[in-house]
Every structure is written in structure tokens, then in C-alpha cells.
Computed example of a mutant assay.
Amino acid sequence: MNRFLLTSAFLLAAVPAAFAAEPAAQPVVWPQLPPKAPTSNVKLVEPHLHVNRAGKGAPRIALTFDACMGKTDPRILSTLVDQQIPATIFVTARWLRSNPETLAVFLAHPDIFELEDHGQNHIPAVDVPTKVYGIPAAGSPQAVAQEVKGGADAMVAAGIPQPRWFRGATAKYSLSAIAQIRGMGYRIAGYSVNGDSGSLLPAKMVEKQYASAKDGDVIISHINQPTHAAGEGVAASILALKAKGVQFVRLQDIPEKGDDDTTN
């Protein structure tokens, strides 16, 4: 009996000692995440633009194309030239450097093509730090001015008349940037029908977008993606609109009306 009590006492004494020998648990230290970049709450607008309606008779539509960077879609270019379809082309300085042959075609057909400013480096014309569709914006009034002026200077250096219209990358703007660009002497080209969603739509969807255009609409599409299916839809849609008797106009040919004080 005494031996049992002694053994029990020894075990009870050893238990706390065993726990005391365990090292104290260390607090979990989580890795520090980098601070989030400040997000801008600035309001961005995507202005609409219409040309004056024809009213009676053939509907009037303005075709506009962005040449952001990259190459030229020959399906669209040949359709415009062969069919003598007037269009307004917005070119960047980056695109001009890579497409001298297409520029020569544009300049050889001043009755068809109106060339306007799409910026120097295809940077959104937003004067605060932010991103638009993942693209870093200009971020300051000085950078907006450089984007606009740099594009225009490259155009004039390439033998293009001084532009009167500007369309920024992504076609989104801060209201203060709109006022700044208007103060530089430019109208800002919005649109009313998105023809190809950045040249990302399949051909059949492009055809549906074009078919929805009405009298006075301004269609935006892209002429710089020769490998995209959208170009096939654009070319087919131009022919379909022509077959319906549409009167095609350039922005310089007809009075227009844009919202957000882009043309007033």
C-alpha cells in the first residue's frame, strides 16, 4: 500500500515537471502584405457622340477607327478604299512609326480618310493616378497634355494636317481632363455604337453591333488587329450598311453633338 502511494506521488509530481519542460508556444507571426496602392474615386465618363441625322432619305452614319498600335487590318482598309467609304481614323504616334505604308494609302486618299489624334503612347487621358481596363492612366494634367500634344506633333511631322479631334485610349476621361483637352483646342470624339469591343468580338457579334446602328450614329472599331476575327465582321458589316443605302460621313463633314462638354 505504501509502495503504491509513493509511486503515485512520484508520478503526480513528474507530470507538472514534464509540462514545465515544454517550451512556451510562440505567437504566430503572419507575413506583412505590401500596402494597397491608393485608389482614385474620380468620376470617369465615356462620352457619346452623334452626327446630325439625315432625317428623310438615307440614314447617315460616321465610321471611326482607332489605330492604337500594332499593324493594319487589310480586310478593313481594302474595303474602305475599294468601296470609297469615307471614314475617320484616330492614329497614335506609336502606330504611325510602324505603319508607313498604310499612312501613304491614307494620304493618297484625302477624299476618303480623315486622320485625327489618338495620342502619343495610347495612355488614357485621365489626370489622376488610376488604371482603366488595367492600363495606367496619364495621371497628371502635364501627362495628359503630353499625350495629346505628342500625338498631334507626330502626325504633323508625318505630313498629316493638324488634327482637330482627339480620342484617348479606352475612350474614358476625367471631366477635368476633358476641360483641359478642350482648352487645347480639340473636340473629343466619343461614339454611340461600339462596333467591335476593342476588336475582341467574334465576327458575327460585330455584324450584329453594326446592324444596330441608326441615323446619326458614330461607330467605333479598330483597324490595327489583322489577326482578330472582328476585322472580318467589320469588313462584312461595312458592305451590308452600304447595301442598305447608308450615307457614310467623316466627322469633319457634318455638324455633330457630344455630351459631357466634349464638342460644345
Rank of each mutant, 00 (worst) to 15 (best):
D259R: 07
N52C: 08
G183V: 08
E46W: 08
A240C: 05
R3L: 14
K244D: 14
Y173H: 10
S8G: 15
P141Y: 07
K204V: 15
V15H: 06
P59Y: 05
Q142V: 12
G190I: 07
G55N: 04
L175I: 10
H118C: 11
V91T: 15
P129Y: 04
F113M: 12
A104L: 10
A154G: 10
R3I: 15
R94M: 06
Q247H: 14
T102H: 03
A243K: 03
A145D: 08
K149M: 08
A213M: 12
E22I: 13
N224F: 07
A240W: 02
L6H: 07
M1F: 08
V218G: 01
A179N: 13
T88Y: 00
T39Y: 04
D117C: 10
Q84R: 14
A158V: 14
T88W: 02
P86S: 06
R187Q: 08
H50F: 11
Q142Y: 06
P38D: 11
A203L: 12
F90L: 11
G168F: 00
Q162N: 06
E116A: 00
N264L: 05
A169M: 11
A154R: 04
E114W: 04
A87S: 13
R187N: 09
T263R: 00
T170E: 13
G139A: 06
G198I: 13
D73V: 12
M184G: 04
W30L: 15
R94C: 04
V126N: 05
L12M: 12
N224S: 14
F90N: 05
N264F: 07
D261A: 14
A243P: 00
V28H: 09
T88N: 01
T88I: 02
L63Q: 01
H118D: 06
V246Q: 03
G139F: 05
A235P: 07
V128E: 06
A203R: 12
T92D: 03
G231I: 06
P124A: 08
L11V: 13
V15S: 13
L96S: 12
H222V: 14
V156H: 02
V42T: 11
L6A: 11
L251T: 01
Q83A: 13
G159N: 09
L5I: 14
L44D: 03
T92A: 08
Q225M: 11
D215L: 06
A13N: 03
T79I: 09
I123A: 06
K149Y: 02
L201D: 15
P59A: 12
Y210G: 09
E232W: 09
P86K: 04
K172W: 08
G183E: 05
V156P: 02
N121S: 07
A145L: 11
G134T: 10
S237L: 15
V156L: 07
T72A: 09
G70H: 04
F65Q: 02
A158L: 09
A236H: 15
L5R: 11
A58C: 12
P38V: 13
M155D: 01
M205A: 15
